[in-house]
Design a protein around this nucleic acid. Structure first.
Lengths: 188, 188
DNA sequence: GCGCTTACGGCAGCTTCGTTGACATATCGG
DNA sequence: CCGATATGTCAACGAAGCTGCCGTAAGCGC
């Protein structure tokens, strides 16, 4: 009953032994990647859970915190676009963060309909704690795997995601470059 | 408010310009990885959603299907260990899959308390459809990134996860080897 | 300046999928 | 035979998604 039979690999010549082997490895390769994504994501996100639980927050809050921290003065709709959740789902999460003084909304200067979100000091402090946990894990993984592997990791991960996500990352990278070269927080 | 300030990077010499730059890039490197994991996982798992929705199933069902398909005759407790969810959460999902004739439980031979789970033909067919979607995305990513990158990807992903998950993957790989070399389904 | 559109908030209600705790049953193993 | 184990089940709850609808303030085009 194992999947050997229905070789999902396009053209399968059942007779040829080497060919069958290659096809099998190709399928196995992809299935392995499914496993990798599942476990790595599970354990990476789980690394921050103890801190969150201690504060009565969830992963949704962490994600919001992360992307607000990474994009100071982000608008609500931009954040919605990144998280790909609905307004109501975000409202709950954001409400909790604002109430606890982790996130501070400020009316936009050029467009006063916008509520531009940034982390407060308390929010940044919490985010830093959460970050530290994930950082440990990731830094250890990077050390263990080596620089070349990291570069490959980035290339594959980037290639897996949507075009929109890649565009976002490009923007991130450019913004980081500007920050690095000594710019202040660019306001909108 | 950008994170430049609280350089989390171990030893920081605030004066030295190049050092600060390197430290910054190091932090940025980790934060980028957070983004990568979020987006890649989001879009990879999302790829199968349309099919699931069409059948009134969710991602939880997909995960169960995947790991049962990959481990024919898996016991309930083993599956629980992989998914890291509670018995009741799994019971619901599993109940739906058994009811729809996707999963067939068989009492264990050596230990008759166990209900060993396998996919039925219908279950395997559905899993194959779901797999095909994710496969497209992943195969494209692999082509785009290249073989060296894929190797690095695997190394990093593996290093991110728990020891237990790595051990599981090692078992998988050995089992795949046995299947590849022509073994039948190993029964327990 | 009128009117359409946009950005955002809020209410009501639903679904999926995770949780805990308690308890029942069959089976294994010593 | 008895304790540990594998599993199922009921009840209740909670987190975090979702839809649909309506309201308000502000921007913007004509």
């Amino acid at each position: 009953m194992p999947d050997q039979g229905h070789a999902t690999g396009a053209e399968a010549k059942p007779g040829e032994r080497a060919g069958a082997g290659l096809l099998f490895l190709r399928e196995e390769e992809i299935r392995l990647a499914q496993d990798l994504l599942f476990f790595a994501y599970r354990d990476f996100t789980g690394a921050a859970d103890p801190i969150l639980e201690e504060l009565g927050l969830g992963r949704a809050h962490h994600r919001a915190l992360h992307f607000i921290g990474r994009n100071p003065a982000i608008s609500v709709s931009e954040l919605l676009g990144i998280l790909r959740i609905t307004k109501q789902s975000l409202a709950r999460v954001l409400g909790a963060l604002v109430e606890r003084g982790m996130v501070a909304p400020v009316a936009g200067r050029t467009d006063r309909r916008q509520r531009l979100l940034s982390l407060t000091e308390a929010g940044a402090a919490l985010e830093a704690r959460l970050f530290a946990r994930q950082r440990e894990r990731l830094a250890a993984a990077y050390r263990e795997a080596g620089g070349t592997a990291v570069e490959g990791f980035r290339r594959v991960m980037r290639a897996i995601m949507d075009e929109a996500a890649r565009a976002y990352l490009d923007g991130q990278t450019r913004a980081a470059g500007r920050r690095w070269r000594g710019g202040g927080p660019e306001d909108r």
